[in-house]
Design a protein around this nucleic acid. Structure first.
Lengths: 122, 122
DNA sequence: TTGCTATATGAGTATCTGTTCATATATTCA
DNA sequence: TGAATATATGAACAGATACTCATATAGCAA
């Protein structure tokens, strides 16, 4: 049922209505924001960018980022849960890799945005 | 094999080296993670998605999201600083819009990733 | 078994973040 | 001028989060 808009002013009801119709559902918003959180941290970003080049194991990533292996492992679990990375075992070593090309696609678009930085009039 | 490098174990020095060469510089990593933070919160995500459809003013966005106008204004400042949104004034009303197509591009790739959810063998 | 290595995980903690509240600024109109 | 409206901003606080530390697990080899 309709919740009353508890004192919220609305100037353009038509815009609010049309926006509401096209809104993503709450579950999708939650999943989306979780996905973007993966890229919203320097350590995870560097891990993803490194894995975009080649598969790597936990301790190599730790050496690259100069943070503890535990920290890397925690972040890899985060990325694993989001299905962004996967691993394969070789003896005691786990090699991590990106699961699909979406990671590199997202990074590419984001870098493109950044590099338009100072718009000299587009 | 195992080399001591400031206390960090390294199993594949060659991989670490090649990853280090291709690393983005720290400023770029910082900017990138800031950019992705814009999408890493439900409220901001909903604002961006609404503005992808049409320009909207602060109080309409507040009504749509059912949060305070102050909260929306804070988030819009965040998005403005990242050059993701811009506004135009008409009297006392500020209409916000997306600044370029990168926002929708990022959302599209992210949704594509989500919707491959359960991979039936890729 | 025992020991060693590589990684995973839970708890604790300091920092970060998104909100609300109170107040300030900007524009329009009487 | 002064009131009303729309938005911006600073402070403060609750909740989230990324790290460290200690410990656990898994595989390999003697």
């Amino acid at each position: 049922m309709d919740k009353e808009l508890c004192g919220c002013r609305v100037i353009h009801q038509d815009k609010v209505d049309s926006a509401r119709i096209k809104e993503l559902d709450p579950d999708e918003i939650e999943e989306l924001s979780q996905l973007f959180k993966a890229f919203a941290d320097g350590s995870r970003l560097r891990i993803l960018q490194a894995l975009a080049i080649q598969e790597m194991c936990v301790c190599d990533l730790a050496a690259l980022l100069e943070i503890s292996e535990s920290a890397v492992s925690h972040q890899l679990r985060f990325l694993r849960n989001l299905k962004l990375v996967a691993n394969r075992r070789e003896g005691t070593i786990l090699y991590y890799r990106l699961r699909d090309q979406h990671v590199t696609a997202l990074l590419a678009v984001a870098l493109e945005h950044l590099r338009e930085g100072q718009p000299a009039i587009v």
